[in-house]
Protein backbone atom coordinates (compact mmCIF):
# COMPACT_ATOMS: atom_id res chain seq x y z
CA UNK A 1 0.00 0.00 0.00
CA UNK A 2 2.73 2.42 0.98
CA UNK A 3 4.48 2.11 -2.39
CA UNK A 4 1.25 2.76 -4.30
CA UNK A 5 0.58 5.78 -2.12
CA UNK A 6 4.06 7.21 -2.62
CA UNK A 7 3.81 6.67 -6.36
CA UNK A 8 0.60 8.70 -6.43
CA UNK A 9 2.50 11.80 -5.39
CA UNK A 10 4.30 11.86 -8.70
CA UNK A 11 1.13 11.18 -10.69
CA UNK A 12 -1.16 13.89 -11.92
CA UNK A 13 -4.30 14.05 -9.75
CA UNK A 14 -7.17 12.08 -11.20
CA UNK A 15 -9.66 14.80 -10.31
CA UNK A 16 -11.29 16.63 -13.15
CA UNK A 17 -11.43 20.31 -12.28
CA UNK A 18 -15.01 20.91 -13.35
CA UNK A 19 -16.22 23.57 -14.21
CA UNK A 20 -12.81 24.96 -15.14
CA UNK A 21 -12.22 21.92 -17.34
CA UNK A 22 -15.26 20.65 -19.16
CA UNK A 23 -15.83 16.96 -19.50
CA UNK A 24 -16.48 15.50 -22.90
CA UNK A 25 -19.63 13.40 -22.70
CA UNK A 26 -20.02 10.08 -24.45
CA UNK A 27 -21.08 10.34 -28.10
CA UNK A 28 -24.65 9.20 -27.57
CA UNK A 29 -25.15 10.57 -24.09
CA UNK A 30 -28.76 11.32 -23.24
CA UNK A 31 -28.83 15.03 -22.54
CA UNK A 32 -31.19 17.79 -23.54
CA UNK A 33 -33.89 17.12 -26.13
CA UNK A 34 -34.09 18.82 -29.48
CA UNK A 35 -37.33 19.18 -31.43
CA UNK A 36 -37.74 19.59 -35.18
CA UNK A 37 -41.17 21.21 -35.62
CA UNK A 38 -41.23 20.73 -39.40
CA UNK A 39 -41.18 16.95 -39.00
CA UNK A 40 -43.84 16.72 -36.29
CA UNK A 41 -47.23 15.37 -37.34
CA UNK A 42 -48.88 15.88 -33.99
CA UNK A 43 -49.51 12.23 -33.12
CA UNK A 44 -48.58 12.97 -29.49
CA UNK A 45 -47.08 9.53 -28.95
CA UNK A 46 -44.21 11.20 -27.13
CA UNK A 47 -46.63 12.82 -24.71
CA UNK A 48 -48.28 9.51 -24.09
CA UNK A 49 -45.07 7.64 -23.37
CA UNK A 50 -43.25 10.29 -21.38
CA UNK A 51 -42.89 8.88 -17.84
CA UNK A 52 -43.09 12.31 -16.22
CA UNK A 53 -45.25 14.35 -18.55
CA UNK A 54 -42.39 16.68 -19.35
CA UNK A 55 -43.25 17.16 -22.98
CA UNK A 56 -46.31 18.93 -24.39
CA UNK A 57 -47.11 19.16 -28.09
CA UNK A 58 -49.40 22.02 -29.03
CA UNK A 59 -51.06 22.76 -32.31
CA UNK A 60 -50.23 26.30 -33.37
CA UNK A 61 -51.57 26.31 -36.89
CA UNK A 62 -52.49 24.15 -39.84
CA UNK A 63 -50.13 21.14 -39.53
CA UNK A 64 -47.88 23.23 -37.35
CA UNK A 65 -46.89 22.09 -33.94
CA UNK A 66 -44.68 23.34 -31.18
CA UNK A 67 -43.25 21.43 -28.24
CA UNK A 68 -42.83 22.62 -24.72
CA UNK A 69 -40.29 20.64 -22.75
CA UNK A 70 -40.02 21.06 -19.00
CA UNK A 71 -36.36 20.40 -18.31
CA UNK A 72 -37.12 20.19 -14.62
CA UNK A 73 -39.49 17.31 -15.14
CA UNK A 74 -37.58 15.54 -17.91
CA UNK A 75 -35.66 12.49 -16.70
CA UNK A 76 -33.62 12.26 -19.90
CA UNK A 77 -34.66 8.69 -20.61
CA UNK A 78 -35.07 9.34 -24.31
CA UNK A 79 -38.29 7.32 -24.60
CA UNK A 80 -39.98 10.11 -26.60
CA UNK A 81 -37.21 9.88 -29.19
CA UNK A 82 -37.88 6.14 -29.50
CA UNK A 83 -41.64 6.64 -29.63
CA UNK A 84 -41.57 9.31 -32.33
CA UNK A 85 -42.44 7.87 -35.71
CA UNK A 86 -41.16 10.82 -37.73
CA UNK A 87 -37.86 11.41 -35.91
CA UNK A 88 -39.00 14.86 -34.90
CA UNK A 89 -37.21 14.55 -31.59
CA UNK A 90 -33.52 14.11 -31.04
CA UNK A 91 -31.33 13.74 -28.02
CA UNK A 92 -28.25 15.88 -27.65
CA UNK A 93 -25.32 15.55 -25.32
CA UNK A 94 -25.77 18.99 -23.88
CA UNK A 95 -25.98 18.48 -20.11
CA UNK A 96 -25.37 21.82 -18.44
CA UNK A 97 -28.98 22.72 -17.91
CA UNK A 98 -29.04 24.03 -14.35
CA UNK A 99 -30.96 27.27 -13.84
CA UNK A 100 -31.62 29.46 -10.85
CA UNK A 101 -34.96 30.58 -12.20
CA UNK A 102 -37.43 27.69 -12.54
CA UNK A 103 -39.25 29.53 -15.34
CA UNK A 104 -36.24 29.23 -17.59
CA UNK A 105 -36.45 25.45 -17.35
CA UNK A 106 -39.50 25.44 -19.62
CA UNK A 107 -38.23 25.45 -23.15
CA UNK A 108 -40.51 26.01 -26.12
CA UNK A 109 -39.51 24.83 -29.57
CA UNK A 110 -41.63 26.66 -32.10
CA UNK A 111 -41.53 27.26 -35.81
CA UNK A 112 -39.97 30.71 -35.66
CA UNK A 113 -36.95 29.71 -33.65
CA UNK A 114 -36.76 26.22 -35.08
CA UNK A 115 -33.91 24.21 -33.70
CA UNK A 116 -32.69 27.06 -31.57
CA UNK A 117 -31.15 25.79 -28.41
CA UNK A 118 -32.41 27.37 -25.21
CA UNK A 119 -30.64 30.05 -23.32
CA UNK A 120 -27.30 28.91 -22.04
CA UNK A 121 -27.31 28.63 -18.26
CA UNK A 122 -25.79 31.56 -16.49
CA UNK A 123 -22.35 31.27 -14.96
CA UNK A 124 -23.78 31.17 -11.46
CA UNK A 125 -25.97 28.23 -12.28
CA UNK A 126 -23.15 26.20 -13.78
CA UNK A 127 -21.07 26.54 -10.65
Amino acid sequence: MIMEVLRSILKKPATNLYPAEKLEMAEKYRGELKFYPERCIGCKLCMRDCPTGAITIRKVGEKKFEAEIDLGKCIYCGQCVDSCLKKALEITKHIELAQLDPKKLKVVFGHEQAGESPEKPSQGAAE
Binding site: A14, M25, A26, E27, K28, Y29, R30, I75, Y76, C77, G78, Q79, D82, I91
Partner: peptide
Amino acid sequence: EIVMDILADLTGNRVNYGINSIGGVR
Protein backbone atom coordinates in the same frame (compact mmCIF):
# COMPACT_ATOMS: atom_id res chain seq x y z
CA GLU B 1 -14.95 5.86 -13.17
CA ILE B 2 -13.57 3.60 -15.91
CA VAL B 3 -16.61 1.35 -15.79
CA MET B 4 -18.96 4.31 -15.36
CA ASP B 5 -17.58 5.86 -18.54
CA ILE B 6 -18.04 2.58 -20.37
CA LEU B 7 -21.65 2.36 -19.21
CA ALA B 8 -22.29 5.96 -20.25
CA ASP B 9 -20.83 5.18 -23.64
CA LEU B 10 -22.85 1.99 -24.12
CA THR B 11 -26.18 3.10 -22.75
CA GLY B 12 -26.22 6.90 -22.71
CA ASN B 13 -26.25 7.44 -18.98
CA ARG B 14 -23.99 6.70 -16.05
CA VAL B 15 -26.65 5.45 -13.66
CA ASN B 16 -30.11 5.03 -15.14
CA TYR B 17 -29.06 3.15 -18.22
CA GLY B 18 -32.47 2.91 -19.84
CA ILE B 19 -31.22 0.07 -21.98
CA ASN B 20 -34.28 -2.14 -21.67
CA SER B 21 -37.40 -1.91 -23.72
CA ILE B 22 -40.26 -4.36 -23.87
CA GLY B 23 -39.02 -7.22 -26.04
CA GLY B 24 -35.41 -6.19 -26.33
CA VAL B 25 -32.90 -3.46 -25.74
CA ARG B 26 -32.77 0.08 -27.03
